[in-house]
Amino acid sequence: MAGNTGNEADLTARLQACYTGVVHDVMRDLGLRDFTLPHDIRPLIPEKRLAGPVFTLSGHIDHNADPHETLLQWTGFLGKARPGTVVVCQPNDATIAHMGELSAETLQRRGILGYLVDGGCRDVDFILEIGFPVFCRYTTPRDVVGVWLPDGMDVPIRIGETDIHPGDYILADRDGACVLPRAQAAVIVTAAEAAVQTENKVRRAILDGMDPQQAYLKYGKF
């Protein structure tokens, strides 16, 4: 399966060098709305920033599911997730873990950049040990076996108030997560890079003694 294109890899690296605060401000100034994910989706490894194009996954609870079928479908997803992407999952569930030890290592070895789920995770100590970036709402030892089935891959999903489409970009850090529409991602990243440079000028000016209001008026940013 093909990995990131050159353009995707370059944009991912540039986005990785940004942070959610500046990306948020750029998107707000562009008139975009509903692009931040719920604030209780948090990183297992706070120092790990997550950035890249999105591969989506959705699923649902089925208490009558055959255990073999749940594992068959889950391992099918693990084999189909596209290298060079961030998997973003809407499990439509708040009771079980939708990521764990072997799955995290499998995705990492296949070149997946990280995993963000509007749900749960388990085997946290192991995931911390291998350093695979995971963002989730909660942790629990309960897993997918016999109770949860994937029902869509690379399809539009919705988390909170945010619609997420395959190929959109995501940036997540310890402040939260922003989803960048694919068609505007390059423009947003370029503007964020420029904003960082302006912020650096404001910072230097204030450290050199300039009044903060004067610094804001001079550079138009704070």
Rank of each mutant, 00 (worst) to 15 (best):
P141A: 13
A205I: 03
L78A: 04
A191C: 04
Y138W: 13
F222V: 11
N64S: 15
K218G: 05
S58E: 12
T75S: 14
G152S: 09
K221I: 13
L11W: 09
H63C: 08
A13G: 09
D154G: 13
A94D: 07
V145K: 03
L102K: 15
L15A: 06
H98P: 10
A194H: 12
T5N: 14
K201M: 14
P67K: 14
R42S: 03
A177S: 11
D93Y: 02
A183E: 15
G111R: 05
V54Q: 01
Y138M: 03
T198C: 03
R122N: 14
L171S: 00
D40V: 10
P38D: 07
E105H: 11
I112Y: 02
G152P: 06
D25Y: 05
D118T: 00
N200M: 05
T140E: 03
E101C: 06
K80D: 11
I164K: 05
G6M: 13
A195D: 10
M27D: 08
D40G: 04
F126G: 04
L50N: 05
L180Y: 01
A17V: 08
T198A: 09
L15K: 03
D173W: 10
F77W: 12
L149D: 00
R33I: 14
P83D: 09
I127H: 02
P133T: 10
V147F: 06
I206H: 00
F55Q: 02
C178P: 00
G84P: 00
F222Q: 09
A192F: 03
T85W: 12
L217E: 14
M99T: 02
V23D: 03
